[in-house]
């Protein structure tokens, strides 16, 4: 049986490798395979010789097994359907005796499905011939803020999740070069010190840019200490970290502990 075996080297770099992959023509399903077999043998789809087609179909399944390929359940269901049709055609049936009377050709349903499937298979091909947006044709895609819908442009500052914060920190770390030569005595800074520094900065400015806190220092220890300090302050609920828009600057502001002031604070936050 001709199965359109084609050789495909696994990889062009493995050109000298003797092993090669055998590719079987890909069938979408049992109906696709049957259609192929019918066409291959130039059989009449409306009068499929069930014995021939069953034989070919089963040979194909066998080959798949020999190649250790996984056979989808659908293929096996079809195999049993074919065998069932074949056997019921062997039995003397009412159909054979009086074809005009009740009782239909056992192949009828299968043929109908095959014909119908071939129609849609062709329709699918035609659909693919259409000029596709994003393949042959393109339209402008808009990202300009003016055209964004109101929901996307919400002025509500986003409460940052930890991941976004870490991502921002990672961005800063990447920018900082790895310089670790001639370490005399590292002037280490403790997280507690950094916390105090940030708090005092907040007393002056009310609003701090996340990135600003990391400016003017190339020392990674210092950066890490700063970041941990921010996390610690978050945990202690002493600061609030917010982002106005996606990918925008991250702002740090003092959180107010007193509940009475919270609402006021909330309002301020919204009008940021």
């Amino acid at each position: 049986m001709d199965l359109n075996l084609s050789e495909d080297y696994i990889d062009s770099s493995d050109r000298y490798d003797v092993s090669y992959k055998v590719r079987l023509e890909k069938f979408e399903g049992p109906l696709d395979l049957l259609l192929y077999l019918i066409k291959k043998s130039e059989l009449d789809i409306y009068d499929v010789p069930i014995a021939i087609i069953t034989k070919q179909y089963l040979e194909y399944i066998k080959l798949l097994k020999e190649l250790n390929l996984e056979i989808a359940g659908d293929f096996l269901v079809m195999a049993s359907t074919l065998i069932q049709i074949k056997s019921s055609m062997l039995l003397p049936s009412r159909y054979e005796e009086n074809p005009d009377e009740e009782g239909e050709d056992p192949r009828a349903e299968l043929i109908r499905r095959l014909v119908e499937y071939s129609r849609y298979k062709e329709a699918a091909l035609r659909l693919n011939d259409q000029k596709l947006l994003g393949r042959e044709l393109f339209a402008r895609s808009f990202v300009s803020k003016e055209l964004q819908s109101d929901t996307l442009m919400s002025s509500e500052p986003l409460e940052l999740d930890l991941f976004a914060l870490i991502e921002a920190f990672r961005g800063i770390l990447i920018k900082t070069p790895h310089e670790s030569f001639h370490e005399v005595s590292a002037e280490s800074i403790s997280i507690a010190e950094r916390i105090n520094e940030i708090l005092s900065l907040l007393q002056e400015k009310e609003l701090l840019d996340f990135a600003e806190l990391f400016e003017n220092c190339a020392d990674r220890d210092y950066l890490v200490a700063t970041f941990l300090a921010i996390l610690e302050l978050c945990k202690l609920r002493l600061i609030r970290v917010r982002q106005q828009e996606q990918y925008g600057s991250i702002w740090i502001r003092p959180a107010v502990v007193e509940t009475s002031d919270r609402h006021e604070q909330e309002d301020k936050g919204d009008s940021l």
Binding site: L31, A72, R113, Y120, A123, R126, L127
Partner: peptide
């Protein structure tokens, strides 16, 4: 191919259920 087939069947036969699509295509 499977996406195109399913799309074609859905386009021509809608409204259609998954079972009907699978019956027409012969596959899950």
């Amino acid at each position: 191919q499977s996406a195109l087939e399913t799309l074609a069947i859905t386009a021509y036969r809608q409204p259609i259920t998954r079972a009907e699509i699978e019956y027409l295509r012969g596959v899950d």
